[in-house]
Design a protein around this nucleic acid. Structure first.
Lengths: 181, 181
DNA sequence: GTTCCCATGTAACGGGTTACATGATTGA
DNA sequence: TCAATCATGTAACCCGTTACATGGGAAC
C-alpha cells in the first residue's frame, strides 16, 4: 500500500496533478519507490474516492489538480508514526550473492569486482547529485538530501562488503592455484 | 523473475521437493527473497514445463522431488553473470524517511530513535545467528553467512545514518526551543 | 484412532508493468 | 502547420498474498 502514501506525502508538500506527480516520481522518487503512469492515475482515483484527496482545481487540457484532505494528512501521519513498520525485504542483488557459491572462485571474484566498480560509479553519481542540489532549500530537496545521504551510506557499505568478499574468494582461488601446482 | 532463479539456485545445490524448498525459504531465504507456498508450487510447475527442472523421484504421500536440468544450470549461470543486473529498489523504509519533514522535528527525532533501537536489536539477532551457524560448512550455510555478513554491514550503516539524522533533527528542535524562549 | 507433520494443489484478489489510445496547448 | 509537451485514461498480463481444500503417513 505504499504508493498511496507516497502520493499522500507528495500532495502534503504541494498540490499537484497526476502529471506533476509523475515527474516527481521520475526524478526524486525513482530510487525510492518507482511508479508508473497508469498506477499513479489509478491510485489518485482511489484516493479521491476514499476521501484522502480531492480535486482542487481543473486547469486547461483536462488538468486536474489534487489536494490532500484532512483525512489524508491523518492517514499520512499514522503511516509515518507506525510503531512497527513492516520490514519485508526482497533484494535481487542479495539473492545473486546468496548463490555465488555456484560460480567457481575466480568467476565469483570477478562478479564481486564488477560490483565494486558499479558501487564506485553509483557513489560518484550520488555525490554529483548532492553537490548539484546543495543550493536548494525547499521541502522536496531536503527530503531528497535525506535519502541521498542514506543511499551514500548504504552504497558505501555495499562496496566495502563486496571488496571484503571479493578478497575472500580471491584468496581461495589462490589456494586452489597453489595446491594445483 | 527472481523466484525462478531462487528455486534454480536451491535445486543446483540439492534436489528437493516443493515442501523442502518451502522450508528453506522460511529459514535461509526469508530475509532475502520471501516466497509463499502457492508461489513455489506454481513456479516449480512452470520451471518443469520450461525444461529447466524435472521431476527426478516420486516419493510417498505424492512427494515429487525436483532436480535442475542442464538447461536450468545454464539459465542460473546466465543470471548470476549478467553484466548489468537490474537495480530496481523499492524500500518502504526509505519512503518513510523521505517524508520525515512532514513530522515536527521532535517527532522525527523520536521516529529515528526508534529506528536506531530497531537496528540495534536486529544486529544482535543477526550476530546471534552468525554465532550459532558458524560451525556448519555446507553450501547453504556458507551462502547464508555471505548474506548475513551483508545484512550486518548494511544494518550497521542504516543505524549510523539514523543516529546522524536523529542528531540533526534534535539540534533543529533545540534551536526551535531556544528561539521560543 | 487421532494428532501432527508431510505434501500438493487451486481460486480470488491486489499491486505493478507494458502497451494502447486519445486529445489539448504551446512554441518554433 | 508540425512537433513537442502536457494531460488523462484503459486493458492485458504477470507476480505475489491470502485463503481454501485435500489427503497420505508416522508416532503415540
Amino acid at each position: 500500500m505504499s504508493l498511496r502514501h507516497a502520493l499522500l506525502g507528495l500532495l502534503a508538500i504541494k498540490s499537484a496533478s497526476g502529471y506533476d506527480l509523475l515527474r516527481t516520481f521520475e526524478t526524486s522518487l525513482a530510487q525510492v519507490w518507482p511508479a508508473t503512469q497508469s498506477q499513479v492515475y489509478g491510485e489518485l482515483g482511489k484516493l479521491t474516492t476514499a476521501g484522502l484527496t480531492e480535486v482542487s482545481t481543473c486547469g486547461p487540457r483536462g488538468r486536474k489538480e489534487y489536494a490532500i484532505t484532512t483525512a489524508g494528512r491523518q492517514e499520512l501521519r499514522d503511516w509515518l508514526l507506525e510503531p512497527q513498520p513492516p520490514r519485508v525485504v526482497r533484494s535481487a542483488a542479495l539473492l545473486r550473492f546468496f548463490f555465488l557459491g555456484q560460480l567457481d572462485r575466480t568467476e565469483a571474484a570477478a562478479m564481486l569486482h564488477a560490483e565494486v566498480e558499479w558501487a564506485t560509479q553509483y557513489l560518484a553519481q550520488l555525490r554529483a547529485i548532492e553537490t548539484m542540489t546543495a543550493k536548494y532549500d525547499d521541502e522536496l530537496s531536503r527530503a531528497g538530501r535525506l535519502v541521498l545521504d542514506y543511499g551514500i551510506s548504504n552504497t558505501t557499505a555495499h562496496r566495502e562488503w563486496a571488496r571484503r568478499t571479493r578478497q575472500h574468494f580471491a584468496a581461495e582461488a589462490d589456494q586452489d592455484a597453489g595446491s594445483a601446482e
